[in-house]
Simulated assay, not measured.
Amino acid sequence: MHLSHQLGIVILFLSFLCSSVKSMYFFLEGNNQKCFMEELSKGTVIDGNYKTQEYDSKSQSYRENPSSSILITIDEIFDKGHRVLNQRSGSSGRFTFTAADSGDHLICVMATTKNWFSKENTKLFFDMKFIDNVFDNSQKEDAEKEKLSSINMKIRDINSKVASIKREQQYQREHEIEFRNQSEATNSHIMYWLIIQFVIIVATCLWQMRHLKNFFTVKKLV
């Protein structure tokens, strides 16, 4: 019981180290964008969720507008502002991103409206979960093992099929040999029977000729 409790604490501690969550909400005016910088290590995964609400002047409250959209961009500051993510989605949704290299990343969000010069306020709820790819090597090793295991299974399956084909071919050869032997034996039996019949016919003819000769001699016809 004590060991399982310690194991649970260790797992919880590793989970805390491997991931962090940032939740925030802020207001955007018109088509202005909000940017913030994050230093990400290589392999860090960002799992983000967002939801927007536009200000309704009639009800004087913030409400969801299905026709609105949001633009999310991520630029690599260390690589001369190279843009690695440019995603436009609806008023609410989710996005994921994996850092290809370590360094500062500029994350920007912008709520877009139909009217470019609109000054309406948009409330944006934004939360991001940062997952460090600590187990990347082990995951790759597991994937490689699974891939090798799959290849080995396919090789064994192919070898089994080849062995089955060889057994079938061997059976066919043995069957052909047996059929040929039976055919040759039958042909030889037929040949022997024909020879015996020929001998019997010749003997019968000779006996009949001798019998007729004796008959004619007795009757003094010859």
Rank of each mutant, 00 (worst) to 15 (best):
H82A: 05
R83D: 00
R83F: 01
V84H: 00
L85C: 08
N86Y: 06
N86A: 07
Q87V: 09
Q87E: 06
Q87G: 02
R88G: 01
R88Q: 10
S89H: 07
S89A: 14
G90M: 08
G90F: 11
G90L: 11
G93S: 01
R94Q: 15
F95R: 02
F95T: 11
T96V: 05
F97P: 02
F97C: 02
T98W: 04
T98E: 15
A99V: 01
A100V: 03
A100G: 11
S102E: 11
G103L: 03
H105D: 04
H105N: 09
L106C: 09
L106S: 04
I107V: 06
C108M: 01
V109A: 12
M110T: 10
A111V: 06
T112F: 02
T112S: 04
T113E: 07
T113H: 09
K114V: 04
K114F: 04
N115F: 04
W116Q: 13
F117Q: 00
F117Y: 05
S118D: 05
S118V: 04
K119S: 10
N121H: 13
T122R: 06
T122E: 04
L124E: 04
L124A: 04
L124I: 11
L124G: 00
F125Y: 15
K129W: 06
K129M: 15
K129I: 05
I131F: 02
I131H: 03
I131V: 05
D132P: 01
V134F: 11
F135P: 01
F135K: 00
F135V: 11
F135M: 12
N137W: 00
N137E: 15
K140P: 02
K140W: 00
K140F: 00
E141Q: 08
A143W: 07
E144Q: 10
E144A: 12
E144W: 01
E144S: 09
E144F: 09
K145N: 12
K147F: 08
K147Q: 14
K147P: 02
S149F: 08
S149C: 05
S149M: 06
S150Y: 12
I151T: 09
M153F: 10
M153D: 15
M153Q: 14
K154W: 09
I155C: 05
I155H: 05
I155V: 15
D157M: 07
I158V: 04
I158L: 13
I158M: 13
I158C: 01
N159A: 07
N159Y: 01
K161L: 08
K161Y: 06
V162T: 12
I165A: 06
R167V: 01
R167G: 01
R167E: 12
E168Y: 12
Q169H: 08
Q170W: 00
Q170R: 13
Y171Q: 15
Y171L: 14
Q172I: 12
Q172D: 13
Q172E: 10
R173F: 07
R173M: 11
E174A: 15
E174N: 10
E174P: 03
E174S: 14
H175M: 10
H175I: 00
E176P: 00
E176F: 00
I177N: 14
I177Q: 15
E178C: 03
F179D: 09
F179V: 13
R180D: 13
N181L: 14
N181Y: 12
Q182M: 11
S183R: 05
